[in-house]
């Protein structure tokens, strides 16, 4: 490891910054998509439910890497849409993980007792007010643990962009590997880097969950070493 010069470390840390940007932007787009599609799937018009369900099945059905190849290589040729690589990456990540997220949103909305909606009707709230003031705030704490799992999946998914030439950690690693001619140190280092980012994200989400539960007057649960709400048993409705 002593062979790694300051310049090579610099390459890796530039990569860390790009990975963080990809994760944050991808998560922002993904969260937006997840809420829009997830809420649309509870709409009373069948056509809205059908289209949002179709979106989810298509983007959950295909492989993230294949979708990324499609956005990078097919969109420019077939439609003449040439995106900056960074944005093409964010778009693919956000659309894919947003589709998984929509299932989290839909499930959490469905878990709020129907009686709450009825109380909202009895107080004459509009449907939008019922969603925003009553249902969403109650659904929110339940969304956080599965959203954390999905966020880690997204972080891991950002490594895919290195294949397409976006300068993230994994891309930096391939440059460093070429310079050193030695693979073990650099790949060990970046695996640890990813692990540290994942750890920080998980801790942050745990804090968010505690706060959200406190707002509902519920006591927080004790966590394990690496945060509790792991995908204990993934169901078809969960992340991944």
């Amino acid at each position: 490891m002593t062979d790694l010069t300051t310049g090579l470390w610099g390459l890796l840390f530039q990569g860390v910054w790009v990975t963080i940007q990809l994760t944050v932007l991808g998560a922002a787009l993904g969260a937006f998509v997840a809420f829009v599609v997830g809420v649309a799937r509870t709409n009373r018009l069948w056509i809205v439910r059908f289209l949002s369900g179709l979106y989810m099945e298509i983007f959950r059905g295909t492989s993230a890497l294949v979708l990324m190849f499609w956005v990078f290589f097919v969109l420019p040729v077939a439609f003449g849409w040439q995106l900056v690589p960074m944005w093409a990456a964010v778009l693919s990540l956000g659309l894919t993980y947003g589709a998984y997220g929509s299932e989290i949103v839909r499930g959490a909305l469905a878990s709020v007792p129907p009686a709450q909606r009825e109380a909202g009707i009895a107080l004459n709230f509009t449907p939008w007010q019922r969603l925003r003031k009553i249902v969403l705030p109650q659904a929110w704490p339940g969304m956080i643990p599965p959203a954390n799992n999905l966020l880690i999946e997204l972080l891991k998914g950002t490594a895919l962009v290195s294949v397409l030439g976006v300068g993230d950690i994994a891309f930096g690693a391939s440059l460093v590997r070429n310079a050193l001619g030695d693979s073990a140190p650099v790949y060990t280092i970046i695996l640890v880097m990813y692990f540290v980012i994942a750890f920080v994200l998980t801790r942050g989400m745990r804090a968010l969950e505690r706060q959200a539960k406190a707002n509902l007057g519920q006591a927080p649960e004790r966590s394990r070493l690496f945060g509790k709400g792991r995908p204990a048993a993934a169901t078809s409705t969960g992340g991944k």
Partner: peptide
């Protein structure tokens, strides 16, 4: 925990490049 929280892609590179070393 380590394997689950790090990218499969990087793990593949690790196996592919490091094992031969």
């Amino acid at each position: 925990e380590f394997v689950r929280n790090t990218p499969l892609l990087v793990q593949l590179f690790f196996l592919y490049f490091v094992l031969p070393e």
